[in-house]
């Protein structure tokens, strides 16, 4: 096998490796949006809900519609019988007041569940490991229909 052929083979194999590597970067950054998780420090806060509906780990946490963090863990507290949701919030939003309230909302009619934070007016801030006191559970469609039906009967 002559020398030029060997160089050609090694060159194309190198191009193959590079192209595959670039594709992996494309899948990581552009398709899976990995960049939002890398390079940003987070801190953890918790909130207790009576019912989390369809909230999942990695659901977004929004303030004023902007995603500032993600749900990192959901546990059931066997003592108080409610759900403890841990959220990881981007460190640049460490200015949340301590009387911030949290509610579980749905994006669109049938969309994903997400947590909406409503900042309060307190001077003190919610630090790392802080717990949100005022929470509003997810809206369960069946409960709502049930209420609507019973109210309709009372009206008769």
């Amino acid at each position: 096998m002559n020398h030029q052929r060997i160089i050609w083979i090694e060159f194309t194999v190198g191009v193959f490796m590079l192209v595959a590597f670039l594709s992996a970067i494309f899948l990581a950054l552009r398709v899976s949006g990995l960049v939002t998780m890398v390079g940003s420090e987070t801190y953890q806060i918790r909130a207790r809900f009576d019912n989390i509906g369809g909230l999942k780990v990695r659901s977004p946490v929004n303030i004023a519609g902007v995603t500032v963090g993600r749900v990192s863990d959901i546990q059931f507290d066997a003592k108080t019988f409610d759900a403890v949701v841990s959220m990881e919030i981007d460190n640049q939003y460490k200015i949340l007041p301590s009387d911030t309230s949290a509610s579980i909302l749905t994006s669109g009619l049938l969309g994903e569940k997400y947590i909406n934070l409503e900042p309060g007016a307190s001077e003190t801030t919610l630090g790392s490991g802080g717990e949100i006191e005022a929470t509003q559970s997810a809206l369960i469609l069946e409960n709502l229909i049930g209420k609507f039906l019973t109210r309709g009967k009372e009206g008769d």
């Binding site: 193959f16 490796m17 192209v19 595959a20 594709s23 992996a24 494309f26 899948l27 552009r30 398709v31």
Partner: peptide
């Protein structure tokens, strides 16, 4: 695996 990554990227 490299070809599969490439397939997905080109497909997207």
């Amino acid at each position: 695996p490299l070809l599969a990554i490439l397939f997905s990227a080109v497909g997207v």
